[in-house]
Design a protein around this nucleic acid. Structure first.
Length: 687
DNA sequence: CGGCTGTAACTTTTT
DNA sequence: GTTACAGCCG
C-alpha cells in the first residue's frame, strides 16, 4: 500500500529511535514488535495510528485492540495530539471483548444471534452455574462427595474455551482433584450453554467464541474487510482463542501488528499463552520482527535490578534492555520489623518525595493482591494522604449494587433467570426454593408470555407476609415499564432505589453508605440514554478504580496511586513503592504449586520493578500477619522474596532493621512472640 | 420435614 | 463479604 521509506513531513517521526521508526512506518504484512519494558511501546503504537491516518488510511478502518479500555483511550488520545483529534476518535479501539460486543450487535444475525443480547460478566457466569448446580445436585449428594463450586466451574469452563483445551485435559492439568467429577461437570456445562441460548445472553467467553465463529460466515468476510489495519497491544497476554480471531481477520487483511513482551506475561491464569507471541512468526508467515530495546523509562540502577531479576527466568526471548538515562539513585530495599512499620515507612518516603517536588500522582504503591494495601490505606487516611486504588475494586461486586443491576436486567431481559433469582430473594420469606417456585409459575424459562407482565398483571399466590414485599416489587417494575418509551437509566435507578431502600437498610448495618453507592451508580447512569447500552458497558468496562466513580472534583486534586501489579501493567511512575516483597505474598503462596506458576510470579515482580522511573523502593516486612493457618499466633517471620537472592540484593541500597545481616537468617518462626501478645491485648481494648 | 434465617470460617491476579 | 452449616419456624 505504501513504501517504507517515503520521507515524512511529520516532525514527530524524528523523535523516534530507528527501531521505533521502523515499527511506526513499516508497510504491509504481519509485524511482531517485541517491546521490552519502558521502550516506548505505547508511544510507538500511538505514532503508528497517527502515521497510518496521515498516510490516508481512513481511521474507521483501523482496529486497535488493547488490554483495557483505559489503554485504548490513552493511546488514541496521544495519537490525537499528533493528527486531527476528530479523526482518531473514529478508530475502533478497545478490548477484544468490547469489540466483539460491538461487532456482534451488528453482524450477529449471521450466527442466529439476536442483536439485543445481554452480557454476563464473571460473577453472572458463576451465578448461572450455581443455579444449575443447585438444581442438578440434590442436597444430600453435595455432602456425600466434594463437587467443584461455582467459581471453580467458571474457571474450568473459561480455560476450556479460551485455551481451546478439552475438558478432560483441563481437569487433568489444572484441577486434578476434580478428575472423577468429569461427567457431572460436563452435564452442568451442557445445561449452562443451553440456558444462555434460551435467555439470549452471552458470557465473556462467548463474545470471543462468537467473534471467531463469525469469521467462518460470509458476514465474517465483511468484518475482515472492515479493517485495513489491525494493531494489538500486550500480545503476550492474549489467549489462543484471541489468536484465532486474528487469524479470521487475516483473510482479507494482511496488515496485522502485534506488540508485546514475553517477559511481562502475567495472565496465564486467564488462559493467556506466551506461545502466541513466541509462535507468531509461524502462525503469520512472512512476519517482520522488530525489537525495541532502548529503555527510556528507568535509570540504570533500576534497570540493573530489573534485569537481574528477569535474568533468573527459566526461559525467555533474549533481550538486552539498555538505559537511555544515566545516573540515578540505587533502588532501596527497606526491611521493616512488621507491617505497621512498613506502612509508616511508605508514608514517610512518599511525603519526603512530595516535599522534593514529586506530586503524589507521580508515585505509586504496588502490591500482589488487593488486600495487601489494607493497613497502608488506614495509615494514609490517618495522615491525610489522598489516594485512589486500582484493581481489586469491589463496587460492582457488592451485593447492593448487584441487587439494583439485577432489577434493571430483569427489565431489560425478562428471561434472565439469574437476575430474577436474585431479585425475588430480596423479599422477606423468599429464599432459593421460594424464588425457584415463583420463577416456575411466572414461566421465566418456558412460557411464551413475558414473565414481567405476568408478575405485574397476575402475580402468584404467596403467604401474606411475603405479599407486601411482592406488591412493592410489582409496583416498582410496573412504574419502570409504564410508559411506552423506557425511562432513562438514571431515572430507572432512582425508582428502583425507592423500592430497594427498606431492604438495604434492614439487611445491612452500613445501609446509608450503600444507598450512597446506589446514588453513585445513578450518577454514572446519567451518561447513558439507553439501558441496554448502560448494562453492557458496565459489564465490559467496569470502573477500575475508586476515581472512576467519584466526580470531577477529585481530578484537580493530587492523589497517590495504589494498584495491584496486574492493574499497573502499562503504567509508569517517578517513584514506585513495592510492598510485601516477602515469600507468600510475592510470590503469592497460591501460586507456587509448580515451576510455571513461580515463573509467572517472577515476571509479575519484574513488571512491578520496571514501572519505576527515578526511584524504586522495595519493602520487606520481617513479620506479617497471615490469614488463619491454625489457632495460635498468626504472626510469622517472613522470608524475603525468593526473587531477590543475595547477588541481586547487593544491587540495592539496603536499609532498615536487620539490613546489616543476611536476610536468610530471619526464617525462624516464634509463636506467641511478645509483640503478638501485646497486639492481642491491645485488640481487646481498641476493639 | 423442607426451607428460611442466623452463625462461624476464609478471602489472587481480571476482560 | 462471602459460603457452609445448624437450628428452628411454618
Amino acid at each position: 500500500m505504501f513504501a517504507t521509506n517515503i520521507p515524512s513531513a511529520s516532525s514527530w517521526l524524528e523523535s523516534l529511535n530507528p527501531a521505533q521508526r521502523e515499527a511506526v512506518t513499516c508497510g504491509d504484512g504481519p509485524v511482531l514488535v517485541i517491546a521490552g519494558a519502558g521502550t516506548g511501546k505505547t508511544w510507538t503504537l500511538a505514532c503508528r495510528v497517527a502515521y497510518l491516518i496521515e498516510r490516508g488510511v481512513p481511521p474507521e478502518r483501523i482496529l486497535l485492540l488493547t488490554f483495557s479500555r483505559r489503554a485504548a483511550k490513552e493511546m488514541l488520545a496521544r495519537a490525537g495530539r499528533l493528527v486531527d483529534r476528530t479523526r482518531t476518535g473514529k478508530v475502533w479501539g478497545g478490548t477484544f471483548h468490547a469489540t466483539a460486543n460491538r461487532l456482534l450487535r451488528i453482524y450477529g444475525r449471521a450466527l442466529n444471534l439476536s442483536p439485543d443480547f445481554t452480557v454476563l460478566d464473571q460473577a453472572d457466569m458463576a451465578d448461572l452455574m450455581d443455579l444449575i448446580r443447585g438444581e442438578r445436585t440434590p442436597a444430600r449428594d453435595k455432602k456425600e462427595r466434594r463437587f467443584p463450586k461455582k467459581d471453580t466451574l467458571v474457571a474450568m469452563y473459561s480455560r476450556m474455551v479460551n485455551a481451546g483445551e478439552p475438558l478432560s485435559s483441563v481437569l487433568e492439568h489444572a484441577f486434578p482433584w476434580c478428575r472423577d467429577e468429569a461427567d457431572g461437570i460436563r452435564a452442568i456445562f451442557a445445561e449452562y450453554t443451553r440456558r444462555k441460548r434460551d435467555q439470549n445472553v452471552l458470557d465473556y467467553d462467548d463474545l470471543l467464541l462468537y467473534w471467531r465463529a463469525l469469521g467462518e460466515t460470509p458476514a465474517g468476510q465483511d468484518v475482515a474487510r472492515l479493517f485495513e489495519h489491525v494493531l494489538v497491544d500486550e500480545y503476550q497476554d492474549t489467549n489462543p482463542l484471541q489468536a484465532q480471531i486474528l487469524q479470521s481477520l487475516r483473510a482479507e487483511n494482511r496488515n496485522l501488528m502485534v506488540v508485546g513482551d514475553d517477559a511481562q506475561a502475567i495472565y496465564a491464569f486467564r488462559a493467556a499463552s506466551v506461545r502466541n507471541i513466541l509462535d507468531f512468526p509461524l502462525q503469520f508467515p512472512g512476519a517482520r520482527r522488530i525489537t525495541l530495546e532502548q529503555n527510556y523509562r528507568s535509570t540504570r540502577p533500576i534497570l540493573d535490578v530489573s534485569n537481574a531479576v528477569i535474568a533468573q527466568a527459566r526461559e525467555r526471548f533474549p533481550k538486552n534492555l539498555w538505559p537511555v538515562r544515566s545516573g540515578g539513585a540505587r533502588p532501596v530495599l527497606l526491611t521493616c520489623s512488621d507491617e505497621n512499620e512498613q506502612s509508616g515507612e511508605v508514608c514517610d518516603q512518599i511525603l519526603e518525595h512530595r516535599e522534593q517536588g514529586i506530586p503524589l500522582r507521580r508515585q505509586a504503591v504496588l502490591f500482589r493482591t488487593g488486600h495487601h494495601s489494607d493497613l497502608l490505606e488506614l495509615e494514609l487516611t490517618r495522615r491525610n494522604i489522598p489516594f485512589v486504588k486500582y484493581g481489586g475494586l469491589k463496587f460492582l461486586e457488592s451485593a447492593h449494587i448487584k441487587d439494583v443491576l439485577a432489577m434493571m436486567r430483569v427489565l431489560e431481559n425478562p428471561r434472565d433467570e439469574v437476575s430474577w433469582f436474585r431479585v425475588l430473594q430480596l423479599l422477606d420469606g423468599i429464599g432459593p426454593a421460594g424464588a425457584r417456585s415463583i420463577m416456575t409459575s411466572l414461566g421465566v424459562r418456558v412460557a411464551p408470555r413475558d414473565p414481567l407482565r405476568t408478575l405485574i398483571d397476575s402475580p402468584p399466590r404467596v403467604p401474606d407476609a411475603t405479599a407486601v414485599g411482592l406488591n412493592a416489587l410489582r409496583l416498582a417494575l410496573a412504574d419502570c415499564t409504564a410508559d411506552s418509551t423506557p425511562l432513562p437509566p438514571a431515572s430507572e435507578i432512582a425508582r428502583i432505589r425507592q423500592f430497594i431502600e427498606p431492604f438495604i437498610l434492614e439487611r445491612y448495618s452500613s445501609g446509608q453508605a450503600r444507598l450512597q453507592d446506589i446514588e453513585q451508580l445513578e450518577q454514572v447512569a446519567g451518561n447513558y440514554s439507553v439501558r441496554g447500552r448502560f448494562l453492557s458497558e458496565l459489564a465490559l468496562d467496569p470502573p477500575s478504580a475508586t476515581s472512576d466513580l467519584a466526580g470531577p472534583p477529585l481530578l484537580d486534586e493530587d492523589y497517590l496511586i495504589l494498584s495491584t501489579v496486574h492493574s499497573a501493567k502499562g503504567g509508569e511512575w517517578d517513584v514506585v513503592h513495592i510492598i510485601h516483597a516477602a515469600d507468600g505474598m510475592i510470590p503469592s503462596d497460591m501460586s507456587t504449586g509448580n515451576q510455571e506458576e513461580i515463573e509467572e510470579e517472577r515476571r509479575l515482580f519484574y513488571v512491578a520493578l520496571t514501572r519505576a522511573r527515578d526511584n524504586l523502593y522495595v519493602y520487606f516486612p520481617l513479620r506479617f500477619y497471615r490469614r488463619p493457618r491454625g489457632l495460635d499466633d498468626n504472626h510469622h517471620f517472613a522470608q524475603l522474596t525468593r526473587f531477590l537472592p543475595e547477588p541481586v540484593q547487593s544491587l540495592f541500597d539496603r536499609r532498615g532493621a536487620g539490613a546489616a545481616e543476611s536476610f536468610s537468617s530471619a526464617s525462624v518462626v516464634h509463636k506467641s512472640s511478645r509483640d503478638g501478645i501485646d497486639r492481642l491485648l491491645s485488640s481487646l481494648w481498641d476493639g
